[in-house]
Write a protein that binds this DNA or RNA. Structure first.
Lengths: 141, 141
DNA sequence: TTTACTGCAAATAATTTGCAAAACT
DNA sequence: AGTTTTGCAAATTATTTGCAGTAAA
């Protein structure tokens, strides 16, 4: 989903477009990584001082609820957000070393279909998080 | 996984068995629901005053890392823990109304095999969380 | 008897909230 | 004009940590 598509989508769903929201979406769309509210705030501070951390939180929450970004909680106590633009993937997180492996999510397609058929539930399968033990840590244990 | 199996497993992996740990495991094993650290603390307070919230946190973290319980973050800002005893399932969480639907996880079996083959990653598929939009909220939006 | 675990209290870290002012539509 | 959204500051909530004492193995 591109910057323009998100802006259009927000307009369409009756949300207002503010400079703050534009900046936050811009940072998200151009990031290679998943970002926390703090990450985005720090990034924007470099260029402007006209944004507040609370606004970043409120905007991210709104974007997530409206389906424009995904949110992952990686057992670090903070939420990480990303747009869907840089390709969907599964996060495999090792519960021992906490390292994250990113994996192609096509294997989840049947699951998406299944819950749609059975429960009429539209799953976001862009960024799913799954815990487990990685290869290296299995050797240690 | 039963109470006894967890206790044995902990012994086997060199962890000490303390009354506090026994009580926490007992509460987890006998619960129908997923519990937060606070939930467990409150439950134990009814019967004893010899347990500290910090101990509950430390024990849950240890149990999770060692693979005896699963941990889910349901976008509520708190972590919820459960043993595997009352049957594995997928949490489908509606990002609009935040209601949780529990679904049979057998559809994830191929995924577990796949990541094991390709990355030697042992996934915990007992309690996976997936966000999306539920049937009722789709109608509203 | 060694080392892990606990309680206590204080600290931290992430996120939320109330409210008046500002700014979208 | 009317309603959202923002900034600010303070509050809240969940979780973590240091340390000295206690108790498993």
């Amino acid at each position: 989903m591109s910057y323009q598509e998100i802006i259009q989508g927000l307009r369409h769903s009756g949300h207002r477009i503010t400079p703050q929201r534009e900046m936050i979406i811009d940072v998200l769309v151009h990031s290679e990584r998943h970002l926390s509210a703090e990450d985005i705030y720090v990034e924007l501070e470099k260029y402007t001082n006209t944004i507040d951390l609370a606004t970043v939180y409120r905007t991210l929450d709104m974007l997530w609820e409206a389906g424009f970004v995904s949110c992952n909680e990686m057992h670090t106590g903070k939420k990480l957000y990303a747009t869907h633009k840089h390709g969907p993937h599964i996060h495999l997180i090792c519960r021992h070393c906490l390292r994250v492996l990113e994996v192609d999510p096509s294997i989840l397609d049947p699951l998406g279909q299944d819950v749609l058929n059975r429960f009429d539930f539209k799953a976001d399968l862009q960024h799913v998080t799954i815990f487990g033990i990685c290869s290296a840590c299995q050797a240690l244990l």
